[in-house]
């Protein structure tokens, strides 16, 4: 494995009483696409937020390019974030700005560029995602797939070195899905990015990822290249990869015995 871009060691995090991570350790190699996978509710998105410094871990270390993210002060953190791009699940476009202004937003906030230069940069990024013609639309007028592509253009407008994708494949029609998959691949190659994709869509993720980590129950359950995981003999990995309804990962939420529960009657509903 090449040098690691993000390195996470013994990470603990809990939200309220719920322990989300209990000792996660993983490395994300530079210049590759790494997928973080796992069943819903295992904290994949939380992991991205920890990397972005929006949440602080209760224990453990998390470094991006050697920078200890949890220990940065506000200014350093904001400096570090300028080199990170993040694609949110909902797109998270600013609803009161047009497509053009949304993409220009980070530039306008951080630099004092002349208007013609901003225009050039924005149109270049829009061309990359194929939406140069939609620059005048408002976010409410975009379809889900278009909104995600605009958000992608906005995420790369400051030329980040790290791109994080939060569930980029959910809720898209097959054609848009294909576009997004190939965009992620292309961006990674043409811009020399390090990409982290959080997803639970096996097929699309395995088609583009160089490296896959599967999280379960607050720990890394398995890691390796897509081929290694497909051929893994771990029952858990097989269940996840093939999408079997029941296996080591239970179908049922923990509950007392069903027949016993039925017999108890109505007084013990809660």
């Amino acid at each position: 494995m090449s040098e690691s871009f993000i390195s996470i060691r013994d990470l603990h995090f809990s939200r309220g009483k719920r322990q989300i991570f209990s000792g996660v350790s993983l490395d994300i190699p530079a210049g590759k696409i790494t997928a973080i996978m796992g069943p819903s509710g295992t904290g994949k998105t939380t992991l991205l937020r920890l990397v972005g410094g929006q949440l602080k871990p209760s224990q453990g270390s998390l470094s991006v390019q050697g920078l200890q993210i949890p220990e940065l002060n506000r200014k350093q953190l904001y400096q570090a974030r300028k080199r990170m791009g993040m694609l949110f699940q909902s797109g998270a476009l600013l609803t009161d700005l047009s497509v053009f202004e949304n993409i220009a937003f980070p530039i306008r906030e951080h630099f004092d560029f002349p208007e013609s230069m901003i225009r050039d940069i924005v149109l270049m990024k829009l061309e990359l995602v194929g939406l140069r013609g939609a620059r005048g639309l408002m976010p409410a007028e975009l379809s889900g797939g278009m909104a995600r592509r605009v958000a992608l253009a906005r995420a790369i407008v400051l030329d980040p070195v790290l791109m994080m994708y939060d569930e980029p494949f959910t809720g898209l029609d097959p054609v848009t899905l294909g576009t997004i998959v190939s965009l992620i691949r292309e961006l990674n190659e043409s811009l020399g990015l390090t990409s982290v994709v959080v997803s639970h869509d096996i097929h699309e993720t395995f088609s583009i990822a160089d490296h896959v980590c599967i999280l379960a129950e607050g720990k890394v359950a398995a890691a390796g290249s897509p081929e290694e995981l497909l051929n893994s003999d771990s029952a858990f990995v097989q269940q996840f990869v093939q999408g079997k309804p029941d296996g080591p990962m239970p179908f049922h939420y923990p509950a007392p015995d069903f027949s016993q529960d039925l017999m108890q009657g109505a007084d013990s509903q809660c």
């Binding site: 929006q54 974030r81 998270a92 600013l94 609803t95 906030e109 906005r154 400051l158």
Partner: peptide
Amino acid sequence: GLMKATEQLASMEMMAVDPIHR
């Protein structure tokens, strides 16, 4: 509240823009 619910505030934070100030 809606900007928070639709992750607009979080996305600003990730663009290194302080949503409180902005």
